[in-house]
Computed example of a mutant assay.
Amino acid sequence: MSHTAHIPSHRKPRQSASKSALRAGVAGGVLSTIAVAGAAGPAQAEPVTQTIEMPTITSGFSTAVAASAQATQQVALDLETQAHEDAAAEKAAKTAKKAHAEAVRKAEAEKKAEAAAKAKAEAEAKAQAEERAQRASRTAERTTLSASSGSSNSSGSSASAPSSSSSSSNVSGSAASIVAFAKAQVGDAYVPGGTGPNSWDCSGLVQAAYRTAGIDLPRVSQAQSTAGTQVSLNSLQPGDILYWGGAGSAYHVAIYIGGGQFVGAQNSSTGTVQRSMDYDRPTGAVRVL
């Protein structure tokens, strides 16, 4: 056996006669066609002018997107409108609550003011009634004092030669008239320049009191402090004139009523008062009676 007997042969298998004839026919037909085309001359290639329209696939999508965007915007607008309405409603509720509270507070304040005004009116009416009663009482006392003073003066003038005892009695009577008049004015107002009948300054009260005894005093405190005889504060008698400041330059006067007391129109805060001499110690005193 040959040493190459196992190596397969690489020769191509022979083609069948029918396949060879077919290939030869096809090749001949192609060559014939080329030959005919070359004989006819070069052909002019016409440009393609037809435009092929592709279907628009985005038109419907754009419409859908636009509609969705519009719907989203409308929802946003609706939400914003609702938010504004809710905020306005909340603000209105707060405003109404505040207005109600303010109305309640105002009503309570008005009620309190009305009650205070009513109480004040009642107090003023009561004070006026008491003042009228006091004035009526003082008027009655003044009338009685004036009548008593006139009777005393008439009796004194009818006597041709009064004794020393009757003269002392007349002085005592005049002092009593002065003291009674001064005490009747306690509670009257103090008014600068006041001369009565319901408001006084210090010298106006002293002058009016002495007038009930038929004695005319100077109008001002400076002159009244030198209108009589200077006396010691340790030997005072009812009816003496007390003064504060120097004699002839006094700035205040009052009437001594006995028992260490005086009556004077003090100031606008206190009015006409009765006080102890310890309340405001005078500088000196004069005796007119």
Rank of each mutant, 00 (worst) to 15 (best):
S203R: 01
A21R: 13
V65P: 03
G38H: 07
A133M: 05
S62K: 12
E90G: 15
S155C: 06
S268Y: 07
R287A: 07
Q237W: 02
H84A: 11
A133F: 00
K112D: 14
E130H: 06
V171A: 15
A116F: 02
Q50K: 12
Q274D: 01
R105D: 15
R287P: 04
I241L: 12
Q134E: 06
A180T: 05
G193C: 08
G193M: 03
G214E: 06
S157F: 08
K111M: 13
Y190F: 11
L233G: 03
I34S: 00
N170T: 09
A27E: 05
V206D: 01
R275T: 06
S160G: 13
V191N: 04
S168P: 04
S18V: 13
Y190S: 00
H6E: 13
G245Y: 00
S59T: 14
G214C: 04
K126V: 03
S203V: 01
G173M: 05
R132F: 03
P192N: 11
P197C: 08
E85N: 12
K12G: 09
G193W: 03
V273E: 07
G258E: 04
A113F: 10
R142C: 10
A125K: 12
I178H: 07
S276H: 02
M1A: 12
I257Q: 02
A161L: 13
P162Q: 06
K91A: 15
V104Q: 15
S167F: 12
T226R: 09
P218M: 07
I178E: 03
P47T: 06
E141F: 04
G196S: 07
V191E: 09
T226E: 03
Q74P: 00
T4K: 09
S2Q: 10
A213Y: 06
A119D: 06
S160Q: 12
A227E: 09
G193S: 11
G228E: 02
R142L: 10
K12P: 15
S155I: 05
G187Y: 03
S20E: 09
K91F: 14
N198I: 05
V286C: 05
A208V: 01
A67M: 04
P197S: 15
V75H: 06
A136V: 03
A35K: 00
V206I: 08
S276C: 01
E124R: 09
S154P: 02
A64D: 15
R138V: 03
A64E: 15
A227W: 01
R138A: 15
S59G: 11
T272N: 05
